[in-house]
Nucleic acid binder design. Structure first.
Length: 256
DNA sequence: ATGGTTGCTTAGCAA
């Protein structure tokens, strides 16, 4: 089974590119973030035509998450209990293929020290509390999405330059590390140790051409799934396509 | 670089 995560930065703006990629790759499960579409306007039909069932929790203009699946989805939840940003659609969970799947769009935080930065830290802390009080690290669970945190120096293009800035602040990294410490493994790091493996490049400053990237989109799994993870890829070619998202898909493969 | 680009919405915010 292949599980992908992709911040599409507007599902409607990215629908053509998404459908072409789904047709080519046919991952079993795809978690989307920043769909920016209200539920009543979700493009159900073109995705169904490609063989994907969809569940979604969206809103107009901002945020929004969805799960696309070629396998049946069950036990869908759109609520992170005690969500510090409860009005924003950032959380979607479902059971698929015998595992619990949680798709998150963590608040960006905007600027270090801002009110939104503190909401980001509170949101990550609440996500940790929810996991620790709801699940066991011994059960098959995937936590994936746009975390808006680069975990380590090798996950940013210039650690000295961006240390302490948004996406790579010590408090953000500590909050992310607490998630891992509960019992999650970063699937990409099970298979790749080098730097330069990025998932996001700012639209500004010709960041992609200069490879000023960050690895902020992650697929985290509990031990039973870490043992089954046979590879992780970054669909970097999609950033060079016309009309790209600023993020690329991350895809993890699990043996049965 | 208090810049730069994209998307949504239509002047300004969010990322």
């Amino acid at each position: 089974m292949r599980i992908a995560t992709w911040n599409v930065n507007s599902l409607r703006a990215r629908l053509e590119l998404l459908c072409a990629w789904l047709q080519q790759e046919q991952p079993e499960v795809v978690c989307l973030q920043e769909t920016k579409v209200a539920d009543e306007a979700f493009p159900v039909a073109p995705l169904a035509a490609l063989g994907y069932q969809a569940v979604y929790s969206g809103q107009k203009t901002y945020n929004g998450v969805a799960i696309l699946s070629r396998l049946p989805l069950a036990e869908v939840s759109t609520v992170l209990p005690a969500d510090p940003a409860a009005a924003e659609k950032r959380f979607l969970a479902a059971t698929v293929g015998g595992l619990r799947l949680i798709n998150v769009y963590v608040p960006n935080g905007q600027a270090v020290g801002s009110p939104k930065f503190h909401t980001k830290l509170a949101w990550l802390a609440q996500l940790h509390r929810f996991l620790a009080t709801t699940y066991s690290p011994q059960q098959p669970l995937v936590l994936c999405g746009d975390f808006n945190v680069a975990p380590e120096p090798r996950d940013v293009y210039d650690a000295a330059k961006v240390d302490g800035e948004i996406l790579f602040h010590p408090e953000e990294r500590a909050a992310f590390a607490r998630l891992l410490a509960w019992g999650l493994h970063d699937t990409l790091r099970l298979h790749h140790q080098e730097g330069g493996l990025y998932s996001w490049w700012d639209y500004r400053n010709a960041a992609f051409r200069r490879n000023w990237g960050f690895r902020i989109d992650h697929i985290l799994v509990t031990a039973p799934l870490a043992a089954r993870c046979t590879g992780v890829t970054l669909a970097r070619a999609l950033r060079a396509q016309p009309n790209p998202s600023d993020h690329i898909p991350v895809v993890a493969t699990f043996r049965d």
